[in-house]
């Protein structure tokens, strides 16, 4: 069996549950082997250990991560991102069990910030509960999740629109000073750009391309301030229709 889908949708849980159901608690230990992605192992372990077992449930994040021969020998089960209703109902259940108080806004916030990942949603819930007590507001959830408050993202976007570089620089400095993760900023900027009504497709394309490049640079370890400033500059140029390449001749 091949279980695939985004994280936090229940793949591992399902697999373990199946195993438990099949074998019961006594046989479980001897019949079930769990290997994780970061376990030390190479081909040897796969050969020795895995061979000893009959049924193996394979979990994967993405379809493409599995090579064809493997995929073709398994029955595939796709785990989809969870919908808001399912998440909300489960969250509510947990709140009741744990004696937490969540208003409607917070509930919808938690669904949106976790993006279909139930594990993440529960973690946020627990973190917020720990830090802020049993009465949790939407703001608390946001701060615990690392999502950047919308005002901040809007301020940066507005600065870019204005065409004033120094203003944009100031906003960028603010983002860095507040400690917001820049990769998150890129992600949220991306959302704004894609959904903006007043931008042409070409502008959107330009900005998104730059966002992608900058994100890659971040992954390579580049400095956050410089990358964000660069993105702000490019965005500004796109929004104000300045040429992409610079030339003085």
């Amino acid at each position: 069996m091949l279980f695939y889908g985004p994280p936090g949708t229940g793949k591992t849980t399902t697999a373990l549950a199946i195993a438990h159901q099949l074998f019961g608690p006594e046989l479980y230990k001897s019949r079930v082997l769990e290997l994780n992605a970061s376990d030390d192992r190479g081909i040897n372990v796969v050969r020795t250990k895995i061979k000893g077992f009959a049924a193996v449930a394979v979990g994967s994040g993405q379809r493409q991560g599995i090579i064809e021969p493997l995929a073709s020998r398994c029955a595939k089960f796709r785990f989809k991102p969870l919908s808001e209703e399912i998440m909300s109902s489960r969250i509510t259940y947990i709140c009741n069990q744990e004696g937490l108080n969540l208003d409607a806004e917070a509930l919808s916030t938690i669904s949106s910030i976790s993006q279909g990942d139930l594990r993440r949603a529960i973690t946020y819930l627990q973190s917020a509960a720990r830090l802020f007590g049993s009465s949790i507001s939407s703001k608390d959830l946001i701060s615990v999740s690392g999502v950047i408050p919308q005002e901040v993202v809007d301020a940066l976007f507005a600065a870019c629109k204005s065409g004033n570089f120094d203003l944009a620089n100031k906003e960028v400095n603010n983002v860095i000073a507040e400690g917001y993760p820049v990769s998150q900023m890129f992600s949220q900027l991306f959302d704004i750009i894609v959904e903006a009504d007043d931008l042409s497709d070409e502008q959107k394309a330009r900005i998104c391309r730059k966002l992608g490049e900058a994100d890659k640079c971040l992954v390579d370890g580049a400095d956050e301030y410089l990358q964000l400033l660069d993105v702000a500059g490019s965005t500004m140029r796109a929004l104000c229709n300045m040429p992409e390449e610079f030339s003085y001749n």
């Binding site: 570089f165 620089n169 900058a214 640079c217 390579d220 580049a222 400095d223 301030y225 410089l226 990358q227 400033l229 660069d230 500059g233 490019s234 500004m236 140029r237 300045m242 610079f246």
Partner: peptide
């Protein structure tokens, strides 16, 4: 690199700032 950029930006004209930032980010990466 960052400090050098900071000092240069202070003295540059607006049109150049984008460009210089772009290259700073590029070379730092």
């Amino acid at each position: 690199l960052k400090r050098l950029l900071y000092e240069l930006l202070k003295k540059l004209d607006a049109e150049l700032k984008h460009e210089v930032c772009r290259w700073a980010a590029y070379y730092e990466h």
